[in-house]
Computed example of a mutant assay.
Amino acid sequence: MRYSLEQLETFVAVARAGSFSAAARQLGKTQSTVSAAIGNLEVDLGVALFDRATKIPTLTEAGRRLLREAHGVLDRCLALEGHAQSLSESVEPGLTLAIEIPYNVLMPAFAAFAERFPHVDLEVRHPLHGDVSALVREGEAQLGIGFAQPGYARELDFVQMGKLVMAHVAARGHPLAALSTVNFSDLRQHRRLAFSAHSERLPTTEYLDATHCWRAESYLALLEMTRAGLGWATLPRMLVRRELADGDLVELQLGAYPHTDWLLGVDLLWNKARPLGKAGSWLRAELARFKVSETDSAGHPTAF
């Protein structure tokens, strides 16, 4: 079989136009050229693609089936051309991101990136021990998204993306869930389930202490352990809204903060000494414009 892409394009054009003459006009060719291309393709494939018994050729059963295959081949050719064009424009083949906040808030930005750069691979990493800035500083990730820190290395630059509300929660059967107001001394008597990224380093975490502490680098692991009653945890409220609404988890009301939510800034990080390629620069700009926010306990959007 030595059929060509031009023959497949002609086949698709005839099927779409409904006749050889109409396809010829669309392709800018003579009708005889189109007829010859279809005839040669039928010889190469060994099947009749069109029934010529009627005045207007119609697809045979084999033609209908092979038309789908032809569309698939041509679609793959377009993808190949697009990939080659992106490489010729110095678009990097892949990007690595280090992320420590819940991923769901970033999906709109990722969807826009996938549409703009369909051939660029994206790797998302959980930072080792929650240190987003270290991965970006060492070049293991081109961009980092994490909870704001009081100071970054000189090589790093950042922009704040917004704020998230952190909620102190326990399972509904946990002893802390029965208390109308929870003091720090109450927390210390029960196991703490902490996300490694902010177990010690974020503002006010020095008060969230306990005799025993289990740590995890996965929010989902902490969520499941909390639902199982293994301890209390501090998690992004947007991550546990469903569990709070269903009553599986109870938000602990801290006596020290009766009128305020615990808000944490979210920063986008990059290394000033490591220039980003075309895709990385576009994604950094998109994320910088993207606002991470949610509503607080009073129903108001978190402000910058």
Rank of each mutant, 00 (worst) to 15 (best):
G229E: 00
L283F: 06
A216C: 07
D246Q: 07
L254T: 00
E224L: 12
V266E: 02
Y207C: 14
E243F: 01
R201C: 12
R201K: 10
L208W: 10
W214G: 14
E294W: 03
A288N: 06
A197S: 08
W262M: 09
P275S: 06
L222N: 01
L264M: 07
L268Q: 03
L264R: 12
L254V: 01
D246W: 05
F290C: 05
A279K: 01
M225W: 11
T204V: 13
R237Y: 07
N271T: 03
E206M: 13
W282A: 08
R274M: 11
S196Y: 15
E200L: 11
T226R: 00
W282M: 05
V292K: 07
W214R: 15
K291L: 14
D296R: 05
A216D: 03
R289W: 12
L235A: 04
L223G: 10
E217H: 11
T234Y: 11
R242H: 09
A197H: 02
D246K: 03
D267M: 01
S199V: 11
E294F: 05
H198F: 13
L223M: 10
A197Y: 02
R215I: 06
E217Q: 10
N271H: 08
A273D: 10
R289M: 14
C213I: 11
D296G: 06
K291V: 13
A256E: 14
R215E: 14
E251Y: 03
D267R: 00
G280I: 02
T211D: 15
